[in-house]
Amino acid sequence: MSGLQVDGITFRYAAKGPAALEDVSFRVEPGVFCALLGPNGAGKSTLFALLTRLVVARAGRIEVAGHDLARHPRAALAAIGVVFQQPTLDLDMSVWSNLTYFAGLHGLSGRKARCAIEAALDRLSMRERAGEPVRNLNGGHRRRMEIARALIHRPAVLLLDEATVGLDAASRAAITDHVHDLAAHGLDGHRPAVLWASHLVDEIRPADQVVILHRGKVLAQGDARDLAGETTLAQRFLAMTGEEREGASGAAGPVGEGATGRAGEAAE
């Protein structure tokens, strides 16, 4: 299996506390855009912490590009590109310096690093901003830069945790389109498996794989189109997570945005 496989992951922050994740299993094949859909507090960020080995679970197994994360963490981490929910940029350093630092953390230096960084910047149309301090970039460009950074070492698995949070509609659409394009057409011939954590239904296309996570459990998974059935994905999501009232009143605004159309319509 060369994409991402999660098998029976159960995780508790405290030994006797409630399970933050319970028996979570799914797989994402190379070239597939998989949306991990869940309301706030569903366990998405905990799952990302586990996938990036910031913490380890005592039960279950995670395999990245064929490498068991527990047994071969180095090989598995080398195959992961990640964009965390919280920005992880050094604002006082230039775009280029930030990227060089990251390339170095993955053991890339000299010409190899330079070529990889230039390619990643070109892909996100950020080449002309390379010399600017990150502080000068707007939120959308900072996110694009973080995605460019996650691609420098050509990862087999790309993880994005709420990558569009806090961005305006245009930036959100641009980033969502770009990541869909990455999964579909790949990086220089190889197509990464993409795991996109979000609570925004309108970022999901009908052909995307969807894993619905709620209170630490996988409620459903499959194609967005199939999951939506005769209704819309947003309505289905709200029905499953029991937040119809919130959605109707507008408190769950982002989910409500997609609730007006079918999953496919929302994305198109």
Binding site: T52, R53, R74, T88, D90, F102, L105
Partner: peptide
């Protein structure tokens, strides 16, 4: 707090080395 520690720790090199 700012998250850059997360970035460091997701490097494929051993944590003790980092």
């Amino acid at each position: 707090e700012m998250g850059s520690m997360r970035l460091l720790l997701t490097s494929p090199y051993p944590r003790w080395w980092l």
